[in-house]
Amino acid sequence: MLSGEFDIELPLLLEAIHLKYSYDFRRYALSSLKRRLEQAMEHFNCRSLSALQERVLREPEVMRGMLAHLTVQVSEMFRDAGFYRALREKVVPYLRTYPSLKVWIPGCATGEEVYSLAILLREEGLLDRTLIYATDINPEALHKAEAGIYELDRIADFSKAYAEAGGRASLSDYYTAGYNAAVFDKSLREGVLFSDHSLATDSVFAEVQLITCRNVLIYFDRVLQDRAVALFRDSLCRKGFLGLGAKESLTFSSYAAEFAEFVREERIYQRR
């Protein structure tokens, strides 16, 4: 494990990235960030973070590669079946009462959660009146999300998760299998707006009834988590819903009092 100089160079690199490219990683959780930066050093064959910083500042394509190291989490469709069952059984009845719906999926990465939610809303008859904002800071991830193409060898796991999550049909009804990829039906994303948005630097852009932001806040420190949760609070309509990851909680947030636990064990909160 690297230490000493590494710990000095780390904030300098983050500052340089922020000044040059406006990406703000300065409030990311250190433990995961350190691992990712070590991997980036190895990938770009740099012996130190200073050497990496030199390349990041002078070679924009290295910054594009860095974004992949610093942001993309490979996600799964219907990760945590219980979460999607709770959405279907407990949250959807409330969503039905709105004539039109807006949903925000911040940190959507390569889109697995976007398609999971779109399928659920289609099966509940809500997708036609829903606008989904799928946002991320990584343009390459957003392109992949918009394409909706996933390797075929991942689909077996997705299908199993879909069934466990209470899916009403067969996942294969929603994609066309090619040589080694599954292409999801483009009608699923007709109401999806894929867009660049940073929880670290951008502000509220719409009023929404549901936000699902799962396993994104774990990469932030407490200060940045608070900033993001404040954005969620300001974006959600009164009695709107916030879904977090299985091990994420508002317990340690400054804004905990502004949300009620709606389905405690699945981390679904309701704006007061």
Partner: peptide, 10 residues
């Protein structure tokens, strides 16, 4: 830091 727990899905 803290020490406290952190999680990742890397």
């Amino acid at each position: 830091e803290g020490p406290s727990f952190a999680l990742s899905v890397d």
